[in-house]
Amino acid sequence: MSKNADEQHKHGAGPAIARRGLLYIVSSPSGAGKTTLARRVLAADPNITMSVSVTTRAPRPGEQQSVDYHFVDRTRFEQMRDGDELLEWAKVFDNFYGTPRAPVEAAISSGKDVLFDIDWQGAQQLSQKMPGDVVRVFVLPPSGDVLEDRLKTRAQDPPEIVAKRMAAASSEISHWPEYDYVIVNTDVETSVASALAILTAERLKRARLLGLSDFVRKLQSAL
Rank of each mutant, 00 (worst) to 15 (best):
D84V: 09
L87R: 02
V104P: 00
R60W: 13
G62N: 08
K112G: 10
S109F: 00
F93T: 11
A102K: 10
D45M: 10
P100Y: 05
R81I: 11
A106D: 13
V104S: 03
T55L: 03
T56F: 09
V92E: 12
M50W: 05
R81K: 15
S51K: 00
S53N: 06
S109I: 05
V67H: 09
A106Q: 15
E85A: 15
G83W: 14
T49Y: 06
S109E: 15
R57K: 12
Y69G: 02
V54I: 12
Q64M: 13
L87D: 00
A38C: 11
Q65N: 12
E105T: 12
V54H: 08
L42T: 02
S51A: 15
S51D: 04
H70R: 14
F77C: 04
P61D: 15
P103W: 04
A106S: 13
H70L: 14
R76M: 14
E85I: 07
R81G: 09
G111N: 07
E85P: 05
D73Q: 06
P59D: 09
I48F: 05
V92C: 08
S53Y: 02
T36I: 09
V54E: 05
H70M: 13
S109N: 13
V72S: 07
F96Y: 15
R74V: 05
V52D: 01
D82L: 13
E105Q: 12
F116M: 00
K91D: 14
V114Q: 03
G31Q: 06
M50N: 13
D117Q: 01
L87M: 04
G33Q: 10
D68M: 03
T35N: 12
E63H: 05
L42K: 00
F77K: 06
S109T: 14
A43R: 06
E88K: 03
A58L: 14
S66Q: 12
V54G: 02
G83A: 14
T36W: 05
A43M: 04
H70W: 15
T75W: 06
S53V: 03
F93S: 14
L87K: 03
N95I: 04
G33R: 12
Q79Y: 10
F77H: 09
G83I: 13
W89V: 03
E88S: 09
R74K: 14
K112R: 15
T56H: 10
D94C: 08
V104T: 08
D117L: 02
F71L: 10
G98I: 12
S110L: 13
S66C: 10
P59A: 11
T36Y: 06
R40K: 15
L37F: 05
W89G: 01
E105A: 04
G111A: 08
